[in-house]
C-alpha cells in the first residue's frame, strides 16, 4: 500500500484528474462538466491525458466476462435445497417419504428427547388448543420448543421486494412444524392449506415478542405478522388419517399475493 501510494499521483492537476474520471464515468454534473471543458480547452496536455485516460477506461470496461463453470448452478442449488419444481411434485398423493409413518418411527426414535421437550414445554406454556373456528383468530401461543430443531424435510425461500424469508418443514416426532422466518415492510401473511392433508393445527410457537394474528380453520392456517418475525406452526396427524403432502403455502405482502409454494413434495 505504501509503495502504491508513492506512485499514484497523476501527472496532471489532481482536481482536473478527478473531473476527467467522473466525466468518463458519466457522474459529472453540468457545472463540473463546464469547468472540465474549460480546463481542457486551455490545455493541450490535459486533452492528451484525457484521451489517454478514456482509452484506458474503455480497455477496463472491455474486459470480457468469464462464464462460470457449468457445474456451478447445480452445485449451488444442491447446497441450498431448492424447492422441487412443480412438474416433479405429486399433488395430493399419499406420501411415501419423508412423512411416511415408517420414517416417523425412525426419526421419532432419533428425536425422542426433542419430542419430550417439545411436548413438555408446549404443555407448560399453554392451555389446550380447542378452536377450529375460521371466523375467529384463535392462535395459541406457546413457548419455543427448546433446542429441538427436528429433521428438516423441505424448505422454501421468499425473496420478493416486499417480503423476504424462509419456511422450513420439519419433523418433530409425532408433530410437524413449519418454521417461518419472514421480514416485510408492511403486513406479511402466510397461509397454509391443510385441507385434506390429514393434519391438524396444534399450536404456534415463538421465542420472541409475539406480534402475530393467527386464524385457523379445518382447511387453512393464516398468520399475519409485521416486520421481522420468527415462529413455528405445529401440525399433528389427524387421528385415523394419513398425512398427505405437499402442503400448499401462499405468501402475501400487504394483502397482495407475492409467492406460492409447496412443501414436502416427493423428490
Amino acid at each position: 500500500m505504501k509503495e502504491q501510494n508513492n506512485i499514484h499521483q497523476p501527472p496532471v492537476d489532481q482536481h482536473a484528474y478527478e473531473l476527467m474520471n467522473a466525466a468518463i464515468d458519466g457522474e459529472l454534473g453540468p457545472a463540473e462538466q463546464a469547468e472540465l471543458n474549460k480546463l481542457l480547452a486551455e490545455s493541450d496536455e490535459l486533452q492528451d491525458f484525457d484521451a489517454e485516460l478514456r482509452s484506458f477506461v474503455r480497455l477496463l470496461n472491455d474486459v470480457p466476462e468469464r462464464a462460470p463453470p457449468e457445474y456451478l448452478q447445480q452445485a449451488i442449488e444442491r447446497q441450498i435445497r431448492l424447492p422441487v419444481p412443480k412438474n416433479k411434485q405429486t399433488r395430493g398423493k399419499a406420501i411415501s417419504s419423508p412423512l411416511n409413518p415408517k420414517n416417523w418411527l425412525r426419526t421419532g426414535l432419533a428425536l425422542a428427547a426433542g419430542i419430550v421437550l417439545t411436548v413438555g414445554i408446549y404443555e407448560m406454556g399453554s392451555g389446550p388448543i380447542t378452536s377450529r373456528d375460521a371466523s375467529n383468530l384463535t392462535g395459541t401461543i406457546i413457548d419455543k420448543p427448546g433446542s429441538s430443531q427436528g429433521e428438516l424435510l423441505d424448505s422454501v425461500h421468499i425473496y420478493t421486494d416486499t417480503l423476504q424469508g424462509a419456511v422450513e418443514l420439519r419433523s418433530r416426532g409425532d408433530l410437524f412444524s413449519l418454521d417461518v422466518n419472514v421480514k416485510s415492510e408492511g403486513l406479511a401473511k402466510v397461509v397454509v392449506n391443510i385441507a385434506g392433508r390429514g393434519l391438524e393445527f396444534e399450536g404456534i410457537t415463538n421465542g420472541q415478542d409475539f406480534d402475530n394474528d393467527v386464524a385457523v380453520s379445518d382447511d387453512l392456517i393464516n398468520v399475519v405478522s409485521e416486520g421481522a418475525q420468527s415462529y413455528s406452526l405445529l401440525l399433528r396427524q389427524t387421528p385415523g388419517s394419513q398425512p398427505v403432502t405437499p402442503l400448499e403455502l401462499e405468501f402475501f405482502a400487504n394483502d397482495t399475493l407475492v409467492q406460492a409454494a409447496e412443501l414436502g413434495g416427493s423428490r
Binding site: 497523476p10 464515468d25 485516460l53
Partner: peptide
Amino acid sequence: KSRLYTARQLLK
C-alpha cells in the same frame, strides 16, 4: 471516487 481514481492510475 478517491479509491477508483487512484486504482486507475496505479493500473495504468
